[in-house]
Design a protein around this nucleic acid. Structure first.
Lengths: 346, 346
DNA sequence: TTGAAAGCGTTACCAT
DNA sequence: ATGGTAACGCTTTCAA
């Protein structure tokens, strides 16, 4: 049933070594096989439909040509959220030409078992949106393979290369835009899950810093639970806030819907800003102003860097200097932001 | 550096067997370990940061808990095309709860080396958009693991379960829609790559059959090369065709752009229909009428079926009967289809 | 209850 | 130039 190297060796009347040398293409220079023997081996392999076992080879060579991509806070992927697909696009475009495979591992993603990084299956790990609980940090520090992270600001991860959007710059653009429209009191809106994430904290701080720098009041934090009725209170006519900066486009979308429900007009009563500039920002009503980050470029760069780290480790080359890249964001101004209406400016 | 089972065994003063039994959780009933020994082993493992090697385990148990997803005709993934992400969504939602990992393997995807299916790394393979050259067919027939295919009509694959959209039904809807608008002469537009694919042939045939059944002339085939100027000829005022049914949304998009360029008005001069009903159909000008297929549901069902096949093979259960599922499509009517203008109806 | 040892399918060193 | 053989790290049978 299952054809092994031994079967091929036997069929060709040679040793397994000869088969290995001929078929693995490892370019082993210490051993050579005569052309006719090589040919005989190749023929036998083909006839028997021999397929080298990747597992056995990896176990022996300690090289799997497989990397893991970990999305923490993974709640499913879908066309409505462009994030995951942009990451995958960047990753595969860097990985595939080099012959590496990519795997999504549920026990890391769902169970958060960071130790699986070092279970021998992967030559490296790209970790997106990590949390830094003690356990994870420990697993990372002791990882037996190179790790690269995305969406982590410089310095948060111990000795780990990071590729991150410039959230500070992004929020400065948002604030500048809102300020130029005449807004003064803005709020940061986030969901209960993301508020606990590193990314949530970063963006919140970034908005706060940008507002202060612009001489505006500290933005209030609105954690939006199931019940969106608070929106009426925060964003309705007479409310203090004239602009809501949302953690994500998805959340912003929910906000837009709830605004309709509670008869809050966007952008007349309140301006709304999203994050990610998803394709659907064009189709919301009104079209959603949103921050764009070059996710695919970041993912591509992160992956390329990961591959170079793997190669360095493999060849015993000196480690390249620590890399922490920051990527500029853009602000796609659409129709959900406008000057605050005067009749209720406070 | 690398902690193996032997290290743990040594530290706990037991044999590797004991460690294996305690830590693998394989529920080996023939062997039992005393509670205190077990505890000692667990402690030693934790202290040494022991991580079982997945490769070695898989090699021994012949079970990897990993399946491969193959996209043939893979030209990169991106947010503009919802297809890949919908597949991944369906796959992961079926796979992850069962603890299986998913890998994208470039040598299968790009190099088309179907033999890699059987390289020991995967418990099963989900193959999307396959081509049926002799080599692939051969590799499939001899695969050592279960294979399930998507987008293959019933019967094309030898003894392989398939999950496919009902292209015939879809094209019947398209034709009915166009006919009700008053169209008679329609054309099928496709790119030079897809025209060679199985899927391309299927849809073309489906449209042809639907047109004939509706008493309309056989649709002409337009293979759209780089130069779209043929559109002016085929779709411009005075041309025979009043409607273009495109292989994909992406292609339809190019068609829309070229129509602008060659001063062909859509839908006044010609109606255009896409395939996939991508989110961007809402944002094209005019909004694109398109066929929708439940890709994520198909992928989920295909994956679930694959898992059951794997389990059957594993436990030596009788193989369940061959499954070939057909999925209903919908037609999302938007603004790119309208009655043909009378002044140039032939 | 526990230990020793034989594989799983490779690769690579050391002989011949 | 070629063959024997010891790993790689694990699971599992067989003996004790």
């Amino acid at each position: 049933m299952k054809v092994t190297m031994r079967d091929v060796a036997q069929a060709a009347g040679v040793s397994t070594m000869a088969v290995s040398v001929v078929l693995s293409g490892s370019g082993n220079k210490r051993v050579s096989v005569s052309p006719e023997t090589a040919e005989r081996i190749r023929r036998a392999a083909q006839e028997l439909r021999y397929r080298p076992n990747h597992l056995a080879r990896s176990l022996k060579t300690q090289k799997t040509h497989q990397i893991a991509v970990v999305f923490q806070h993974f709640c499913g992927i879908g066309p409505e959220n462009p994030y995951h697909i942009q990451v995958l696009q960047g990753v595969t475009s860097a990985l595939f030409p080099k012959g590496y495979a990519m795997t999504l591992c549920p026990r890391m993603i769902l169970d958060g078992d960071a130790n699986l990084m070092s279970d021998g299956r992967f030559d490296g790990v790209l970790w997106c949106r990590p949390e830094f609980d003690a356990e994870s940090l420990d697993a990372i520090k002791c990882a037996s393979v190179p790790v690269v992270m995305m969406h982590v600001p410089n310095g948060m991860a111990p000795n780990i290369p990071t590729f991150c959007a410039d959230n500070d710059g992004a929020m400065r653009q948002v604030v500048a835009h809102l300020k130029s429209l005449g807004h003064r009191r803005i709020a940061f809106v986030i969901d209960p899950i993301s508020v606990k994430s590193v990314e949530g904290a970063i963006r919140r701080e970034a908005l706060k810093a940008a507002a202060e720098k612009a001489g505006m009041p500290t933005p209030e934090l609105i954690v939006l639970e199931q019940d969106h009725s608070v929106l009426a209170q925060y964003a309705g006519p007479g409310a203090l806030h004239t602009a809501l900066v949302c953690f994500s486009d998805e959340l912003a979308c929910h906000v837009l819907k709830s605004c309709v429900r509670y008869e809050v007009r966007v952008p007349d009563d309140v301006s709304v800003v999203g994050f990610d500039s998803s394709p659907f920002c064009e189709t919301t009503k009104p079209r959603l102003t949103s921050v764009s980050q070059p996710v695919d470029r970041m993912a591509n760069a992160a992956t390329t860097h990961l591959l170079s780290l793997i190669e360095e480790a493999e060849k015993g080359l000196p480690r390249s200097p620590m890399t922490c890249c920051l990527y500029d964001c853009g602000l796609d101004v659409r129709d959900s932001t406008a000057p605050p209406s005067t009749h209720r400016r406070v």
